[in-house]
Computed example of a mutant assay.
Amino acid sequence: MCKTNTHAQTKHEIGLINDNDLYVSFYLDEYYTNGLELFYKQATSTNYDFFNKKIRQFTIGQNIYNPQDSDVTKVTFQERPYAGYLYANYSEHLINTKSILTLGATVGVTNTKSGAEWAQNFIHTFYNIDPSNGWDTQIKEKYAIGVLANYTRSILYKENFPLSLSWINTAKLNNVFTNISSGIAIRFNFLKKELAPISNSTFFGTALQYGDEKWIKESYFGIKSFATYQIKDETITGELEKNPTQKEFHIEPWTWQNDFGFYWNSKHTNFSYHIIYCTKNVQEMRTKITRYGSIQFSYKF
């Protein structure tokens, strides 16, 4: 039986997610080099009989991209452009014990208004790394507005069984990013042989309680493996500020990502550490596989 606590119900959550290749190697500073996301969630009731609860989520984040070497001043030698993307999302997660349906809206901006150049040089200063000198060639300013969606379905789950399997699907549609993804999510806990349902688990970002739900203690390993079809990515194909040779970059239509993570929570805190492997998403990249780390932390109240 999953360990619960009737006095630890939490309906709100604030947290952050930080992606960086320095979390897997002190020598990497390439491609998707840093990501920062801050979020707030609130669990509420829902008017739809098919779903047991709803989680509202507000998110603001920043993604930073650069060539394999973060200090390439000439576009001719760049394998992908310098680019920054600052965004804000609002989404609603409709949840029951078998599935999660997420619908939301997003806005964003590239170029200097994204703050990417300043953020990267601040990080470099913190780690005593020389500043990047290629940002004057970055992708030009572009605003984004669009929608996002996610559908997750539990395929295999038993309360006292140490393994669960789910089907995960996501879609983004906006002026900068348009893509669709599909894959599987696996959790395993061979020590205690217990896992929470997808409706109340840190693995799916649903570990907030509403109504009769109880807090469930979790500590397990997880894998999310999915393929993505890229339709548009303006951080790759967008027009550059400086491009004297008129070099073009091309997206790789199909990519594959594998996220290996360890997850742990207490009554009021969630923590997870991930190592993420991705196939290249730009045809000009020489490296076929890239990797980075991710640290996720949140406080529930």
Results as ranks from 00 to 15, higher is better:
residue 69 D to C: 06
residue 87 Y to I: 11
residue 128 N to H: 14
residue 164 S to W: 05
residue 6 T to L: 12
residue 65 Y to D: 03
residue 168 I to E: 03
residue 192 K to N: 11
residue 184 I to Q: 02
residue 299 Y to H: 05
residue 290 T to L: 11
residue 37 E to M: 12
residue 63 N to F: 06
residue 207 A to H: 13
residue 252 E to S: 04
residue 176 V to Q: 10
residue 122 F to Y: 11
residue 65 Y to H: 08
residue 92 E to T: 06
residue 227 A to E: 10
residue 63 N to L: 09
residue 253 P to Q: 05
residue 255 T to F: 01
residue 260 F to A: 00
residue 175 N to Q: 14
residue 88 A to S: 15
residue 242 K to S: 01
residue 232 K to F: 03
residue 18 N to W: 14
residue 82 Y to H: 08
residue 72 V to A: 08
residue 199 S to F: 00
residue 74 K to N: 14
residue 16 L to N: 15
residue 187 R to F: 00
residue 18 N to E: 09
residue 273 Y to L: 11
residue 137 T to L: 08
residue 262 F to D: 04
residue 227 A to F: 13
residue 253 P to M: 00
residue 58 F to D: 13
residue 192 K to F: 06
residue 185 A to C: 01
residue 107 V to P: 05
residue 28 L to G: 00
residue 269 T to E: 00
residue 27 Y to P: 01
residue 183 G to A: 04
residue 38 L to E: 12
residue 196 A to R: 07
residue 221 F to E: 01
residue 86 L to Y: 13
residue 39 F to H: 09
residue 35 G to E: 03
residue 227 A to T: 08
residue 1 M to F: 11
residue 267 K to M: 10
residue 100 I to K: 12
residue 171 A to D: 03
residue 94 L to R: 12
residue 53 K to D: 03
residue 294 S to A: 08
residue 231 I to P: 00
residue 277 Y to T: 13
residue 200 N to C: 03
residue 191 L to F: 10
residue 268 H to M: 08
residue 254 W to F: 06
residue 81 P to R: 09
residue 241 E to C: 00
residue 134 G to W: 09
residue 165 L to R: 04
residue 153 R to K: 10
residue 278 C to I: 01
residue 63 N to R: 11
residue 300 K to C: 12
residue 81 P to Q: 07
residue 272 S to M: 12
residue 149 A to G: 15
residue 188 F to Q: 07
residue 169 N to L: 04
residue 18 N to K: 13
residue 128 N to I: 15
residue 236 I to D: 05
residue 11 K to Y: 11
residue 43 A to L: 13
residue 63 N to D: 09
residue 192 K to I: 04
residue 51 F to V: 00
residue 76 T to V: 15
residue 272 S to E: 07
residue 227 A to V: 15
residue 39 F to L: 07
residue 138 Q to S: 12
residue 288 K to V: 02
residue 94 L to K: 10
residue 293 G to F: 03
residue 175 N to A: 15
residue 173 L to C: 10
